[in-house]
Write a protein that binds this DNA or RNA. Structure first.
Length: 256
DNA sequence: ATGGTAGAAACTCTA
């Protein structure tokens, strides 16, 4: 079973990229973030023709998440239960016995921003909910844009980013608190190249200069981590014409 | 110095 996550930064613009990519990599499940589409405009037929069912929770202009899957989904949840949030950032479903949770964690803007406080509250609510999901399901995969670089090696220049949003101590603590629930960072289960990043600013030729951050993650419950045979970042889509600013992350699971 | 780019929408906000 191959699962993946990709912040597409507008599914309207990136639909050809996504169709091309799923054709190449044949994932069983793909979590998408920043679709920026109202549900009525979701390109269901295009994915259906490519062999995928789709769940989606979107809104105009901002946010929006979706799960593409080859198999049917059940137990669909489109928000963190009990957390009042107008922003469409969460989608969960059970696919082939795996509890898939697609997340688009708030960016936070800057550490003195109201949006940053919202980000930390949002992460606390996610944590409390995932704790319960992990009690319900042995096989849990949380995939998405976490907008947090967990460690110094996940940042092109840790001194420049020290204390900044996406790399501040409270955010990294919140990420550690997710791992403390019994989740593993899938990418770090394997040896990886240095300077492995998933996001590069559109500005300042950041991609060409390898000035990125690793902020998109695949977190796996203990049982799923044992079944994970590979996890990698595919930087190729970032080289395309009109790319998303994020690259996809892929994990392979050997489900018995 | 407070840039620079991209997307959506509507001349600004978010990332």
């Amino acid at each position: 079973m191959r699962i993946a996550t990709w912040n597409v930064n507008s599914l309207k613009v990136r639909l050809p990229h996504v169709l091309d990519w799923v054709g190449k990599h044949r994932p069983d499940v793909v979590c998408l973030q920043e679709t920026k589409l109202e549900d009525v405009n979701f390109p269901l037929d295009a994915f259906s023709n490519a062999g995928y069912q789709a769940l989606f929770s979107g809104q105009k202009t901002y946010n929006g998440v979706a799960i593409l899957s080859r198999s049917a989904c059940s137990d669909v949840v489109a928000a963190v239960p009990g957390f009042d949030d107008a922003q469409k950032r969460v989608l969960a479903a059970t696919v082939d016995g795996v509890r898939v949770v697609c997340v688009y964690v708030p960016n936070g803007e800057s550490i003195d921003s109201e949006k940053y406080r919202y980000k930390l509250k949002w992460l606390a609510a996610l944590n409390a909910w995932l704790k319960r999901e992990l009690e319900r399901f042995p096989r849990v995969a949380v995939l998405g844009d976490f907008n947090i670089a967990p460690e110094a090696r996940d940042v092109h220049d840790p001194l420049v980013w020290d204390g900044q949003v996406l790399f501040s101590t409270p955010e990294r603590e919140a990420f550690k608190n997710l791992l403390a629930l019994g989740l593993k960072d899938g990418f770090r289960l394997f040896e990886q190249p240095e300077k492995s990043f998933t996001w590069w600013d559109y500005r300042m030729n950041a991609f060409r200069r390898k000035m990125g951050l690793r902020i998109d993650h695949v977190l796996l419950s203990t049982e799923l981590a044992k079944l994970c045979t590979a996890c990698s970042i595919d930087v190729d889509p970032r080289k395309a014409e009109r790319p998303s600013d994020h690259a996809p992350v892929i994990a392979d699971l050997k489900i018995p």
